[in-house]
Design a protein around this nucleic acid. Structure first.
Lengths: 251, 251
DNA sequence: CGAAAGGTTGACACGTGTCAAAGTGGGTGG
DNA sequence: CCACCCACTTTGACACGTGTCAACCTTTCG
């Protein structure tokens, strides 16, 4: 059995050496641009001001908070969500190690969503003023920041495709494939994962009710495509999943 | 009766003086940052390389095209859309004068959607290399670019809320309110508009079928909330529309 | 003037939501 | 350390909103 897909158990994590330095961070390749020499790399370290721990269930930031910083996730797992006055909630994304969170706050200087830790997390606080200042000095960083924002725009577009055009099972298949792909890029199994979110949160992200999510899981399980036990999921037939999600977004 | 809400009939448009210069553009306040002095403003003119005309039905760029430039819409109206291998289409947005289009291409150096002119259009071509170079020189422009991208991220989040949580009539109400609000910001009526897109395109954007869009229009009309005749829409009771869309996104 | 594209409306089907009940597992306090 | 509790999940029965299919109408344009 492959190692469990928990971010806490990141591979090659040296036993908690808590440097606040990108230059010595093993996630650098995920959240920072490549192509820096050693000297520049040390200048880059000044992007990150501090670290911050967020316990499971706690908020990294909430709707309305003043925006001052972006956050790079070191460990842990987040959801971002917005909600209506009448209590309906929309999960707008799930974020894992190496991903950047907080871009929503730039436009209005205030965050427009909540960021909730779905497991104990550790983030790098990057004051946006630092990011912008260093971006002016380093075109590579500038381009990187632009790419991160563009990537988020493209991701949201593909979620719009899911929500607007796909049926429940297609959505769940796409969701699972996306999750394992991102976990695999972080050194985890491409067939096994442990979900960090509830059925309700998955449903909110995918625009369906928790019962529908549960039914879709059961259906995939009955068909031998996946193995499910609560939060644990094993993908038995990835090709079958891809077939269900046949219409590759942006083909 | 208020003037018709067609972008071509922009108010205070001097009779087609076709300068390629932001400093003398009457849309500057919409797509460029404020707070530039006259001297800097002229440097800023070099962001825009050329102009480009796009006829109704033609594409400004298509999925897969190399990304080189952002485009600022001077006149005209666009939709951006992505499609699946099996032909399903998702409209990801409608863009009008003063708005920036092409941000999707930054992440991969290739566009990931199609941009189609829904009426004859005229755009400023801004080579992204120019934008980045000037951004390094002018923090105000840098911040502006970041805000534009962040605004797009937030907009897409609110569409996710629409698609994931709202019912057909709520979606259409939100859509109409958003459209008139943007048109009003450009000097048009806040109660009358002429749609530039078909029922099918509205439906694609809002995740519903054209028949459902049509029915929702008829329902609003029957209730005296709006007046509809084909593409012409007059909002009789804006408050009723807001009530239908009561859950203000991100409340 | 005729054809094509877009829009409206009706009848019916079907996917997903709703409501309810029961099962499962993890955390916590005695 | 165990037992209880609570949050989460699964499953079933039924309802309902929206999709599907079809017919007809309106407008535009060659």
């Amino acid at each position: 059995m492959n190692k469990e897909a928990t971010i806490e158990a990141m591979p090659a994590t040296t036993p908690a050496s808590f440097k606040v330095a990108c230059s010595s961070c093993n996630l650098r390749e995920l959240c920072m641009p490549i192509g820096f020499n050693a000297e520049d790399m040390h200048k880059l370290d000044s992007v990150v001001a501090t670290r911050r721990r967020v316990k499971q269930g706690e908020l990294l930031f909430r709707n309305g908070d003043a925006f001052t910083s972006l956050f790079a996730i070191r460990t842990g797992f987040f959801k971002t969500c917005i909600s209506t006055v009448d209590g309906r909630e929309q999960v707008t994304g799930f974020q894992m190690a190496g991903e950047i969170i907080g871009l929503d706050g730039i436009v209005s200087d205030h965050h427009s969503c909540n960021a909730v830790a779905l497991e104990d997390a550790d983030v790098c606080v990057m004051p946006f003023a630092n990011v912008e200042e260093l971006s002016r000095e380093f075109p590579v960083l500038q381009r990187h920041v632009h790419k991160i924002m563009s990537r988020e725009i493209v991701r949201e577009s593909s979620v719009m495709m899911l929500l607007g055009n796909m049926r429940a099972e297609e959505r769940l298949a796409a969701f699972l494939l996306n999750l394992v792909q991102r976990l695999h890029a972080r050194g985890f199994s491409q067939s096994e994962l442990t979900l960090r979110m509830t059925r309700e949160e998955i449903g909110s992200y995918l625009g369906m009710k928790l019962e529908t999510v549960s039914r879709a899981f059961s259906k995939f399980s009955d068909e031998g495509i996946i193995e499910v036990k609560q939060r644990y999921v094993k993908i038995i037939k990835p090709d079958a999943l891809k077939l269900i999600f046949n219409p590759e977004t942006c083909a």
